[in-house]
């Protein structure tokens, strides 16, 4: 199958837009859960780029990496949510502004 050039152009556009949205969310939002979601969004942008490249160059490495990324992302969220839950039990909040006891 021949991969049309316009497809590459548009998919790169979507990738950059998704990654930028995730980056903004990571840097600007204060809610820890939303920050975790932003990380997921960035990971999915990367996945899209990998899949597009894999189809364009007819190589399989990209698709394989995507499977690993999805698995690792699930593990990462599990660890992250456990950490957030533990903090919520202690502080009663998931707002990043409330976690400032380590300073200096």
């Amino acid at each position: 199958m021949n991969f049309p050039l316009s497809m590459t152009y548009w998919s790169h556009f979507v990738v950059v837009a998704m990654f930028a949205l995730g980056l903004l969310g990571f840097l600007l939002r204060k809610n820890t859960i939303v920050v975790l979601m932003s990380i997921e969004l960035m990971l999915n942008a990367v996945n899209l780029l990998l899949i597009e490249t894999s189809m364009r160059t007819h190589t399989s490495e990209g698709i394989i990496l995507v499977v690993f990324v999805v698995t690792v992302a699930a593990a990462e969220v599990a660890v992250g949510l456990a950490i957030v839950l533990n903090l919520y039990r202690m502080k009663g909040s998931v707002n990043l502004d409330h976690f400032k006891s380590l300073q200096g």
């Binding site: 960035m42 990971l43 990998l50 490495e61 990496l65 992250g80």
Partner: peptide, 21 residues
């Protein structure tokens, strides 16, 4: 995890450019 995402993005960019990992 932010560092991991950035690393992954640069991996994807290199893969998109060179077609190999």
């Amino acid at each position: 995890s932010f560092a991991t995402v950035l690393l992954l993005f640069s991996i994807a960019l290199l893969y998109a450019y060179t077609g190999s990992l």
